Amino acid sequence: MNSQKGFTLIELMIVVAIIGILAAIAIPQYQNYTARANGASAVASLGSAKTGVALNLQQGIAACDNVALPANGVCLNGVLTSGNIGTGALATNAQLTPAVANAATITWTCTVNIAAAVTNTCTLRP
């Protein structure tokens, strides 16, 4: 008898179909994960600038005076905007907006902008 070794065409097509289904699920999930990580990194990059703006607001001086910003970061009237983290459709930046209730209480509103998705808001602790 002749015994043949190897896979049939049907078996190979089933394996290719399974890999295609897994890729169709995994790739969008990975892109979401990458975008969230870029957003968290953008918010974290503004941490020291956030402290500087808060101190300036509490002391009653111009909010952006002598505030150390990250690379490509912008401070305009106390609103902090990070530079883009990531590239292409997943390029992400964060914007922190202060709201001063009184000299001791400053609340921050956080917005993360992802080029390929809608704007997301994030929660910050004062």
Rank of each mutant, 00 (worst) to 15 (best):
V79P: 00
Y30A: 13
A103E: 04
T111N: 09
L80T: 00
K5D: 00
I10C: 11
A44K: 14
N102K: 05
V43K: 08
W108T: 00
T81Q: 14
T8A: 04
G6H: 08
A54I: 03
I19H: 00
G73M: 12
I19W: 05
A42K: 02
G78P: 03
T123L: 04
G60F: 07
L124A: 07
T111A: 15
A91R: 07
L69S: 06
A62L: 09
V118D: 14
V74D: 02
S82M: 11
Q29S: 09
T123G: 08
Y33L: 12
C122Q: 05
N38Q: 11
S3N: 14
V43R: 02
D65M: 05
A35D: 06
T92K: 05
A44C: 01
C75P: 03
V79H: 01
A17Q: 05
G39D: 03
A89D: 15
A24I: 10
I27T: 12
T34Q: 15
I10V: 15
I18G: 06
M1D: 10
T123W: 04
L55S: 14
C122W: 13
L80Q: 07
G88K: 08
T8W: 09
I106V: 12
L46N: 11
G6C: 01
T81L: 10
L46T: 10
N38V: 03
Q59E: 13
L22C: 14
A35E: 04
N38H: 15
V100A: 12
R125A: 14
N84R: 06
G6V: 08
A49S: 13
T123K: 07
Y33F: 13
T123R: 02
I19K: 06
G60W: 11
L124W: 06
A117C: 02
A103L: 13
L96P: 09
A68C: 03
N2F: 07
T119A: 14
G47Q: 08
T34H: 10
A116K: 13
A17P: 03
A62F: 04
G39C: 09
K5G: 02
A62K: 11
A104Y: 02
T92Q: 10
A104R: 12
Q58V: 00
N32V: 05
I14M: 13
N2A: 09
N77Q: 06
G86E: 01
A99K: 10
V74H: 01
C64V: 06
A49Q: 01
I19D: 00
G52H: 08
V67Y: 00
A63H: 04
A35L: 04
S41M: 14
A99W: 02
L90W: 06
I14L: 15
A101K: 03
Q31Y: 03
A62R: 01
G88P: 08
N66F: 03
I21S: 12
T81P: 00
C110E: 07
A24G: 15
M1S: 10
G88F: 11
G20N: 07
M13C: 10
A37D: 05
T51K: 04
A99T: 15
N77A: 15
I10K: 12
G73I: 11
A71Y: 02
A23K: 05
S41F: 09
A23T: 15
N113F: 08
A115I: 09
L76N: 14
V67I: 04
I10N: 06
N32E: 14
L12T: 13
A35S: 14
V74A: 02
T92L: 13
I25A: 14
A103I: 04
F7D: 01
R36E: 10
I25F: 15
G86C: 12
V15W: 03
A68H: 00
R36A: 04
N66Y: 05
I61C: 09
A101D: 10
